[in-house]
Design a protein around this nucleic acid. Structure first.
Lengths: 342, 342
DNA sequence: GTTAGCACTCACCCACACAGAGTGCTAACA
DNA sequence: TGTTAGCACTCTGTGTGGGTGAGTGCTAAC
């Protein structure tokens, strides 16, 4: 790690924080005042020149002040940033906002995304748990009309998926009973990755005369298992991209990137640590080379499941946003774990 | 309605279609060629001057060609536009895309929005049916674990709402039975607007010792009824706003507008006709004064329910988009009606 | 009513000058 | 050796003026 004199660290911190606040390059004179005129602006200029040399600061042009380079932000996040905890008020507010309506996992994640977008003024992304090894906990048939029913599947990943199925035959108690038995025998307690199309086909073949009645339901179950294995991304606050003038050049590319879906999923999947902060070109995808991504995983029942986080400019209030995202991920994890309580 | 000579109509049509295709102002010479040199460019210039006089064309500046004014688009849509039907291929493609996974109403609408965004390169908006007079068709309790259950509510508007509820007491057959009886007696066949907070309070008071077990469920039902009364908006293809250079000036305002939600809901609610095309300042909200909105209502069980449509620039391929949106609305209506079949 | 011919009008592009902010460097100082 | 005052320098942003070209509007003839 880079060794910096106390004063240079202080100067770097002032520049980062001031630039984060104003978006304007910071000149030596301003820093001088900010530091209570402890040293002259010329001294600060000398230090700033050194910091540029070290790659921690950048100069948009000769006659402008300095702005943090991506490495400068990184140094700030790793070494200078004040530890900040959400105060009880903020914590309470988030909890109430999130829990005002006890909802399904997918809706909870969507709502968490909305909250995050609101709090951060960035694009918020939340991913629902995708777990190929998830076990089917329960499957229920909910009759809706004579010919339609809803199938609900609860997986050990805490995720709940449902589909509406239409059957040509009337859905009565008999059918429900048969469905229940099939589920208990062939589906419940198995891994979702066992439920392949061939599996369904063999199963269907063994059903005899019930095959026509049952097959739409069984196909729906296969679809639901597929859905359990698939990551769902929820995007919120896309309007915030245009809020950040430094992103206006690449707003189009960014928008396109987040709408493409798959690369974003891959990125979230590749995260190993519970918290990931990627500044500028630390991001794998070059579409994000001028953006910062902050993502936190949440865990359902002690197992890392999905992520929630933001995509924004590199000029971000890291000191406040990182703890906020961490906290939100914690709350979501707890709420989703509850559904699995036996 | 404005009386125009055959030739002027033709010139207007050429200008509108060419401008839609290229985005460049159209000059007299180009039109001349397009019309097979039937008349000279000077003649066309004279006609164009008349069309400007009538307010159907506009001139970005003296030495540029002409572009359609908003009134010009309107005249085109009302009188000149070719009637276009989706061919069987396109129809089939939409149906397959939409119906690949028999889904819940909300998800169906979301998917329809995605399809529309894809097909039109515009922001697609779909609203789920909100009906204050909807009748509760069914309420079902789906146990998920010892202490959590899902409540599913089907309303006559074709909409299905669900919530996950956590109860301190264990959820067993007894509780399911009590719940079922309460639902049959107090909820099913009533209008969702009857299920007010006071109603729930009186009901709770009459439950005696079951009050603690039941109240979270009953509160959830009240929330669900509220949800049935509320319009849900699904936005898709927001990246498309940046695709249209003519909207880049107001991209920020537009983005903000569609994210505010309520005005958009009000707009959809105010539509009386099955198909609404508002060009530029025909839109009530001034944020849309340079945009076009095309919305079609879909009906569930012969009753107008929600809308689906797009927001884009005034420069749109009206001749193709309008039939596409109409068709999609028709398909959605049919699919949602099916769920209600008794 | 239609056409050819021509002057005219802007938007666009480029080059240039000017002001202002903030620096880099030098020489003096503690 | 580290710090400071002073000053020339550099580069952006803005505004001004001339040149080019596309497309028009107008006039006079057909």
């Amino acid at each position: 790690m880079l060794e910096l004199s106390e004063r240079k660290q202080h100067i770097l911190a002032v520049i980062v924080e001031r630039y984060i606040a104003t978006g304007e390059p910071v000149g030596s004179k301003v820093i001088c005042t900010q530091m209570g005129n402890a040293v002259s602006s010329a001294t600060i200029r000398n230090d700033m020149a050194d910091l540029v040399e070290l790659g921690l600061l950048a100069q948009p042009h000769t006659s402008a002040g300095r702005i943090p380079s991506q490495a400068g932000y990184r140094y700030y996040v790793d070494n200078l940033m004040a530890d900040y905890e959400l105060d009880a008020d903020e914590q309470e507010r988030i909890k109430i906002w999130l829990g005002s309506f006890s909802s399904e996992p997918d809706k909870l994640l969507e709502k968490a995304g909305s909250i995050l977008a609101e709090l951060t003024n960035c694009v918020a992304v939340s991913s629902s748990p995708a777990d190929s090894d998830a076990i089917i906990r329960r499957i229920e048939l909910v009759p809706l009309s004579n010919h339609t029913a809803m199938i609900v599947l609860l997986a050990s990943s805490g995720i709940l998926k449902s589909a509406v199925v239409r059957s040509d035959a009337e859905i009565n108690m008999d059918i429900a009973e048969v469905f229940y038995n099939i589920c208990q025998t062939y589906f419940v307690s198995r891994s979702v990755s066992d439920i392949s199309i061939p599996f369904i086909q063999t199963l269907v073949a063994s059903l005899g005369d019930k095959v026509f009645v049952m097959s739409p339901f069984l196909c729906a179950i296969a679809d639901l298992c597929e859905a359990v294995k698939t990551t769902d991304l929820h995007l919120k606050g896309q309007n915030n991209i245009l809020n950040h003038s430094e992103l206006s050049e690449e707003a189009f590319g960014l928008m396109d990137f987040i709408h493409r879906g798959t690369p974003l999923e891959n990125m979230l999947d590749s995260h190993k640590a519970p918290l990931n902060v990627a500044i500028g070109s630390e991001n794998v995808y070059r579409e994000l080379k001028n953006s910062t991504t902050i993502f936190s995983k949440y865990s359902v029942g002690n197992k890392d499941s999905g992520s929630i986080g933001i995509i924004g400019p590199t000029r971000l209030d890291y000191a406040h946003l990182i703890p906020t995202i961490k906290y939100l991920a914690g709350v979501i994890g707890n709420m989703l774990t509850e559904t699995l309580d036996e």
